[in-house]
């Protein structure tokens, strides 16, 4: 009876579904080497190298037009680089053909700037899209339950579950996008300016949520941001993009020790100093128990 059905299901899934490799155990889930990206005459990246450590939240900063988003698009395979190699979870993105890297795709989640929700589906149905794509063997009940708790995990109220993206505010849309990005319990999470366009309270809440989820689910987070508060509050390390390269990677004190003009201006400008003060105040308050 039920056992037979379950066996049948396993059998079918074994035939159809892709192999699911075990969790990535290496030290660097993302390794970029000598990456060059060019749009016509305009050079975006040249000989860019970067390694992301497992379990960290890496903030990526840089002035407008320094190619932060292009870098993210290269890593997730949306932008084919001119030169260089990108390895994600031990597999090469740059060598993979269109459908070859599909088993890596089930192991990362991406939150695009505007949320990029499918507008004809409700929030819950959006969350179910990757589940149905990669694990069609899941029972409908379980699928719905997963969608429900993912929506709540992302900090949305229960009522948002059956709403369409057009009925949500900007901040809620980002949370819904995050719920979809987390649908498959990925190892890697890419966030493109998650706090842009949110009010300070909403932004702080989103930062907190990111940190909490990263800690609970053991995520490695690649986070593009302009938000100094985000950098101070939740990022383990920060990579600085300038002159077509990653000019420095490290904790904020380490970056402050370098004498690159842009870094100094960025962190020692009025906004940088304000964020620094807030962070230290908050840090003294909780006495470093967070990390």
């Amino acid at each position: 009876m039920s056992n037979e059905r379950a066996d049948e299901l396993m059998h079918e899934a074994d035939h159809e579904a892709h192999e699911v490799p075990p969790q990535f155990a290496g030290e660097f889930p993302i390794v970029i080497e000598n990456l060059t990206n060019r749009f016509g005459e305009q050079v975006v990246h040249e000989d860019l190298s970067l390694k992301v450590r497992r379990g960290e939240i890496l903030g990526v900063v840089g002035g407008s037009g320094t190619g932060k988003s292009v870098l993210m698009r290269s890593i997730i395979g949306l932008q084919i680089p001119e030169k260089g190699s990108i390895d994600v979870l031990g597999q090469s993105i740059t060598d993979a053909m269109e459908d070859e890297d599909i088993d890596i795709r089930s192991r990362w989640g991406v939150l695009f700037q505007g949320g990029a929700l499918f507008s004809t589906l409700t929030v819950a149905e959006n969350v179910e899209v990757p589940l149905k794509q990669f694990y069609p063997e899941l029972a409908n009940d379980l699928m719905h339950e997963i969608a429900r708790y993912k929506v709540r995990l992302s900090g949305l109220p229960e009522e948002a579950t059956s709403k369409y993206p057009s009925e949500l505010s900007g901040g809620m849309r980002k949370r819904a996008g995050l719920a979809r990005a987390l649908a498959l319990d990925p190892e890697l999470l890419f966030l493109d300016e998650p706090t842009a366009g949110l009010d300070p309270i909403g932004a702080a809440a989103f930062d907190h949520l990111t940190r909490e989820l990263a800690d609970t689910m053991g995520l490695t987070v690649f986070l593009i941001t302009h938000d100094l508060d985000t950098l101070y509050a939740i990022c383990d390390r920060v990579a600085v993009l300038a002159d077509h390269k990653v000019i420095a990677v490290g904790t904020i004190p380490e970056l402050l020790a370098t004498d690159h003009a842009w870094i100094q201006e960025y962190f020692n400008g009025p906004r940088g100093r304000a964020a620094d003060t807030t962070y230290h105040r908050a840090d003294e308050g909780r006495d470093g128990q967070e990390r």
């Binding site: 969608a147 429900r148 929506v151 995990l153 229960e158 948002a160 709403k163």
Partner: peptide, 14 residues
């Protein structure tokens, strides 16, 4: 603990 705090019975679609 995380998922038990996130339980919900909301409908999937209107």
């Amino acid at each position: 603990e995380a998922v038990s705090n996130a339980k919900s019975t909301a409908p999937i679609s209107p």
